[in-house]
Amino acid sequence: MIAGRAAGPRALLGLYRAQFAVHLAAQMQYRVMLAIWLIGLVLQPLMYLVVWATVARSQGGEAGGFTAGQFAAYFLVLMVVNQLTFTWVTEVTEYRVREGEFSPLLLRPVHPIHADLAENLTYKLLTLTLTLPIALLLGVSFGADFSPPVWAVAAFVPALGLAVALRFVADWLVALLAFWVTRMTAINQTYSVLTIFLTGQIAPLSLFPEPVRVVAAVLPFRWMVAFPVELLLGRLSARETLVGFGAQAVWLVVLVAVLPWAWRAGVRRYSAVGA
């Protein structure tokens, strides 16, 4: 397939710059959409913040090793990290395959993942200008207890970068199932529910019973969102931090290795069906 051919790094850079400009312009056009979208992104962490702060207060100020203020900090950092790692690749791919809009992408001399990544990054940078102030505002109003150690802040940046990459690649792999399964909605929803549950968006993973924690850590879920959040809040020891980076790196290498293979198989399948 032509789309599989690698483009030179300079050509790719040019592509990203062009994509950035296009998506920036496009998303500006849909700014109301963006605002509505933000409500959704903010609402869920906010809801669990309230639930857990209520629990902590009802238990005399502390539950599961978190005070109300620490819960607030956890869910607000989570809100930002989730927004930065989030993708809508699965929904978009399902939509493209269903509506027959995938074929034009295959004709381009560049792998479609680059366009998706560029759009995703544009979107994140754009919305970050909104989520950060919102998180700060909510942090003040809910009395978030946020005082990260300096080393944690330094380690957070690469952990976040790896989490963004990991979640993006994982989402893209799940999205590729659309080539085989005609009705992806149910699979996408299941994946999304599992992601919310296992990345620590309902409660910090440490509050869950052992089996759930093991599943979240053995699968890539914990490393896509929860790890950088816990890291920034200074809740991880040096050893746990190193294990985390190791897990992120291993999963990223594995998924990136699988990706081209899955992509080729998917495209072959797609062409065979002739959708």
Partner: peptide
């Protein structure tokens, strides 16, 4: 997951 979420909350508190 909904029930598990409920379970985790009530593992820490008796009422919400």
């Amino acid at each position: 997951t909904a029930l598990a979420g409920l379970g985790v909350v009530f593992s820490q508190a008796t009422t919400l």
